[in-house]
């Protein structure tokens, strides 16, 4: 992979903003996601917060890969998007299954497993 060959194709717009800003932005997005997972009680909202975490990672990877003129980071983003789609389908199926049984998706109700 020669950086020079690839650099032409990468939008220079991305590099107009300093890399640190991307890092701070993605970290903030990620932390918002974590807070959402830890504090919300609705399964769907928790789920959305997890998606937010994954997208924070995507942003960060794209920023890094643009700055390094290295396409591998962007390839990884495709993998993350594909896998996240698979995960969403399974996750929604689980939530629907639970809704059918107990008519709610509040995770607070799920406390049957205790020692």
């Amino acid at each position: 992979m020669q950086p020079n060959d690839v650099a032409v194709n990468i939008p220079e717009v991305i590099q107009q903003i300093p890399l640190n800003y991307y890092l701070i932005f993605s970290t903030a997005l990620f932390v918002i996601g974590i807070i959402g997972v830890l504090t919300r009680r609705n399964a769907i909202i928790i789920f959305m917060s997890i998606e937010l975490m994954l997208n924070a990672v995507n942003t960060l990877l794209i920023a890094f890969s643009s700055y390094r003129s290295d396409p591998t980071g962007q390839v990884f983003v495709f993998f993350i998007m594909a896998v996240a789609a698979a995960e969403v389908s399974v996750g929604l199926a689980i939530i629907v299954m639970i809704y059918r049984n107990i008519r709610t998706i509040d995770v607070g109700v799920l406390n049957k497993l205790k020692w």
Binding site: S26, F30, G33, I34, V37, A43, I46, F47, I50, M53, L54, A56, V57, L60, L61, F64, F76, I80, E87, V90, G91, I94, I95, M97, I98, N101, I102, V107, L110, N111, K112, L113
Partner: peptide, 25 residues
């Protein structure tokens, strides 16, 4: 019990995946 286990596993597992990915990034 199986339902609850699946949801817990899913949410925790996906959460862990997020952390893993941020580390990789």
């Amino acid at each position: 019990r199986s339902n609850e286990a699946a949801l817990k596993y899913f949410l925790m597992g996906a959460f862990a995946t997020g952390i893993l990915l941020f580390g990789i990034a």
